[in-house]
Protein backbone atom coordinates (compact mmCIF):
# COMPACT_ATOMS: atom_id res chain seq x y z
CA UNK A 1 0.00 0.00 0.00
CA UNK A 2 2.87 2.29 0.72
CA UNK A 3 3.83 1.74 -2.83
CA UNK A 4 1.09 4.01 -4.17
CA UNK A 5 2.09 6.83 -1.93
CA UNK A 6 5.73 6.86 -2.86
CA UNK A 7 5.12 6.70 -6.48
CA UNK A 8 2.92 9.75 -6.55
CA UNK A 9 4.40 12.03 -3.94
CA UNK A 10 5.87 14.46 -6.42
CA UNK A 11 2.95 15.30 -8.59
CA UNK A 12 4.43 17.82 -11.01
CA UNK A 13 2.32 20.76 -12.18
CA UNK A 14 -0.47 20.49 -9.68
CA UNK A 15 -0.46 21.88 -6.20
CA UNK A 16 1.89 19.97 -3.95
CA UNK A 17 -0.36 17.10 -3.19
CA UNK A 18 0.18 13.41 -3.55
CA UNK A 19 -2.15 11.62 -5.89
CA UNK A 20 -3.25 9.64 -2.93
CA UNK A 21 -4.21 12.67 -0.90
CA UNK A 22 -5.94 14.13 -3.88
CA UNK A 23 -7.98 11.02 -4.43
CA UNK A 24 -8.80 10.81 -0.73
CA UNK A 25 -9.97 14.38 -0.59
CA UNK A 26 -11.89 14.13 -3.81
CA UNK A 27 -13.54 10.98 -2.62
CA UNK A 28 -14.45 12.49 0.71
CA UNK A 29 -15.83 15.55 -1.02
CA UNK A 30 -17.94 13.50 -3.33
CA UNK A 31 -19.22 11.37 -0.46
CA UNK A 32 -20.15 14.63 1.21
CA UNK A 33 -21.90 15.68 -1.99
CA UNK A 34 -23.87 12.47 -2.12
CA UNK A 35 -24.74 12.92 1.54
CA UNK A 36 -25.92 16.45 0.93
CA UNK A 37 -27.89 15.55 -2.18
CA UNK A 38 -29.72 12.92 -0.25
CA UNK A 39 -29.69 14.50 3.17
CA UNK A 40 -31.00 17.97 2.46
CA UNK A 41 -34.16 16.83 0.68
CA UNK A 42 -34.62 14.27 3.44
CA UNK A 43 -34.65 16.92 6.10
CA UNK A 44 -36.89 19.19 4.05
CA UNK A 45 -39.23 16.32 3.44
CA UNK A 46 -39.42 15.42 7.08
CA UNK A 47 -39.96 18.90 8.46
CA UNK A 48 -42.36 19.97 5.74
CA UNK A 49 -45.61 19.28 7.60
CA UNK A 50 -44.33 21.21 10.60
CA UNK A 51 -44.62 24.37 8.55
CA UNK A 52 -48.36 24.10 8.47
CA UNK A 53 -49.77 26.26 11.24
CA UNK A 54 -53.26 25.69 12.44
CA UNK A 55 -55.43 28.56 11.35
CA UNK A 56 -59.11 28.72 11.05
CA UNK A 57 -59.02 26.81 7.85
CA UNK A 58 -61.62 29.13 6.37
CA UNK A 59 -61.77 32.84 5.63
CA UNK A 60 -64.56 33.59 7.98
CA UNK A 61 -66.67 31.53 10.23
CA UNK A 62 -70.26 32.68 10.66
CA UNK A 63 -71.50 32.65 14.24
CA UNK A 64 -74.97 34.03 13.57
CA UNK A 65 -76.98 37.26 13.89
CA UNK A 66 -75.66 39.59 16.55
CA UNK A 67 -79.09 39.87 18.12
CA UNK A 68 -78.84 36.41 19.56
CA UNK A 69 -75.77 37.05 21.72
CA UNK A 70 -76.67 37.68 25.35
CA UNK A 71 -75.28 40.90 26.71
CA UNK A 72 -72.97 40.94 29.72
CA UNK A 73 -72.23 37.25 29.92
CA UNK A 74 -69.73 35.18 27.89
CA UNK A 75 -71.63 32.56 25.96
CA UNK A 76 -70.26 29.48 24.29
CA UNK A 77 -70.78 29.15 20.54
CA UNK A 78 -69.76 26.23 18.45
CA UNK A 79 -69.06 26.12 14.75
CA UNK A 80 -67.97 23.30 12.56
CA UNK A 81 -65.20 23.74 10.04
CA UNK A 82 -63.63 21.43 7.54
CA UNK A 83 -59.97 21.13 8.10
CA UNK A 84 -57.59 19.37 5.75
CA UNK A 85 -54.69 17.68 7.43
CA UNK A 86 -52.43 15.80 5.10
CA UNK A 87 -54.83 14.25 2.63
CA UNK A 88 -57.64 13.79 5.10
CA UNK A 89 -60.38 16.33 5.44
CA UNK A 90 -62.04 16.30 8.80
CA UNK A 91 -64.90 18.17 10.25
CA UNK A 92 -63.82 19.86 13.42
CA UNK A 93 -65.82 21.69 15.93
CA UNK A 94 -64.48 25.00 17.19
CA UNK A 95 -65.89 26.58 20.28
CA UNK A 96 -65.71 30.28 21.23
CA UNK A 97 -66.88 32.23 24.17
CA UNK A 98 -68.42 35.35 22.71
CA UNK A 99 -68.73 38.28 24.99
CA UNK A 100 -70.40 41.65 24.52
CA UNK A 101 -71.15 44.48 26.94
CA UNK A 102 -73.35 46.48 24.66
CA UNK A 103 -74.53 44.24 21.86
CA UNK A 104 -72.34 46.17 19.38
CA UNK A 105 -68.76 45.41 20.29
CA UNK A 106 -67.88 41.76 20.57
CA UNK A 107 -64.92 39.81 21.71
CA UNK A 108 -64.41 36.11 21.25
CA UNK A 109 -62.01 33.82 23.00
CA UNK A 110 -61.08 30.23 22.77
CA UNK A 111 -62.38 27.84 25.40
CA UNK A 112 -59.06 26.04 25.42
CA UNK A 113 -57.03 26.51 28.55
CA UNK A 114 -53.62 27.96 27.79
CA UNK A 115 -52.05 25.66 30.31
CA UNK A 116 -52.39 22.18 28.91
CA UNK A 117 -55.41 22.46 26.74
CA UNK A 118 -58.40 21.43 28.83
CA UNK A 119 -61.74 23.06 28.09
CA UNK A 120 -62.60 25.97 30.32
CA UNK A 121 -66.14 26.86 31.22
CA UNK A 122 -67.85 30.02 32.39
CA UNK A 123 -69.07 29.90 35.97
CA UNK A 124 -71.78 32.48 36.24
CA UNK A 125 -71.72 32.72 40.03
CA UNK A 126 -67.99 33.40 40.19
CA UNK A 127 -67.95 35.61 37.08
CA UNK A 128 -64.90 33.63 36.00
CA UNK A 129 -63.82 30.93 33.61
CA UNK A 130 -62.80 27.81 35.37
CA UNK A 131 -60.49 25.08 34.11
CA UNK A 132 -61.27 21.78 35.79
CA UNK A 133 -57.92 20.18 35.08
CA UNK A 134 -55.62 22.18 37.32
CA UNK A 135 -58.19 24.54 38.82
CA UNK A 136 -57.10 27.59 36.91
CA UNK A 137 -59.43 30.58 36.68
CA UNK A 138 -59.61 33.30 34.04
CA UNK A 139 -61.29 36.65 34.18
CA UNK A 140 -64.18 37.71 32.03
CA UNK A 141 -61.81 39.25 29.47
CA UNK A 142 -59.73 36.09 29.33
CA UNK A 143 -56.76 37.13 31.47
CA UNK A 144 -55.44 34.64 33.97
CA UNK A 145 -56.90 35.08 37.45
CA UNK A 146 -55.24 32.19 39.17
CA UNK A 147 -53.49 28.89 38.53
CA UNK A 148 -50.79 27.63 36.21
CA UNK A 149 -51.81 28.95 32.74
CA UNK A 150 -49.02 31.07 31.26
CA UNK A 151 -51.17 33.54 29.33
CA UNK A 152 -54.67 34.77 28.70
CA UNK A 153 -57.16 32.76 26.68
CA UNK A 154 -56.63 33.08 22.93
CA UNK A 155 -58.63 35.88 21.39
CA UNK A 156 -60.27 35.82 17.99
CA UNK A 157 -60.73 38.60 15.59
CA UNK A 158 -64.35 39.32 14.80
CA UNK A 159 -66.20 41.03 12.06
CA UNK A 160 -69.75 42.31 12.00
CA UNK A 161 -71.33 42.51 8.63
CA UNK A 162 -75.04 42.84 7.86
CA UNK A 163 -75.85 42.26 11.49
CA UNK A 164 -74.03 38.93 11.29
CA UNK A 165 -71.07 38.02 13.43
CA UNK A 166 -68.10 36.26 11.86
CA UNK A 167 -64.86 34.99 13.28
CA UNK A 168 -62.11 35.96 10.89
CA UNK A 169 -58.96 34.76 12.58
CA UNK A 170 -56.85 34.43 15.63
CA UNK A 171 -55.49 37.49 17.33
CA UNK A 172 -51.75 36.88 17.40
CA UNK A 173 -50.33 37.55 20.83
Amino acid sequence: MVHGEEQWTSGAGMAKMSRRTFLSRATTTMVGGIGALMGIPTVAYLVSPAKARGGLGVDRLPLGPISKFPVGEPTLFKAAIERKTGWVTQTEELAFYVFTEDGRNFSAMSNICTHLGCRVRWITDDEQFFCPCHSATFNKNGTVASGPPPRALDQFELLVEDEQLFVVGKVEA
Binding site: M1, G4, L23, A26, T27, M30, I34
Partner: peptide, 17 residues
Amino acid sequence: GIPFFPDAVFKDVLVGL
Protein backbone atom coordinates in the same frame (compact mmCIF):
# COMPACT_ATOMS: atom_id res chain seq x y z
CA GLY B 1 -2.69 -4.02 -7.73
CA ILE B 2 -3.93 -0.77 -6.32
CA PRO B 3 -5.17 0.18 -2.88
CA PHE B 4 -8.89 -0.14 -2.53
CA PHE B 5 -9.04 3.23 -0.82
CA PRO B 6 -8.81 5.69 -2.35
CA ASP B 7 -8.13 4.46 -5.86
CA ALA B 8 -11.04 2.11 -6.38
CA VAL B 9 -13.35 3.93 -4.04
CA PHE B 10 -12.73 7.11 -5.95
CA LYS B 11 -14.05 5.54 -9.13
CA ASP B 12 -16.97 4.00 -7.31
CA VAL B 13 -17.96 7.23 -5.67
CA LEU B 14 -17.52 9.21 -8.85
CA VAL B 15 -19.81 6.84 -10.72
CA GLY B 16 -22.18 6.79 -7.76
CA LEU B 17 -22.41 10.56 -7.67
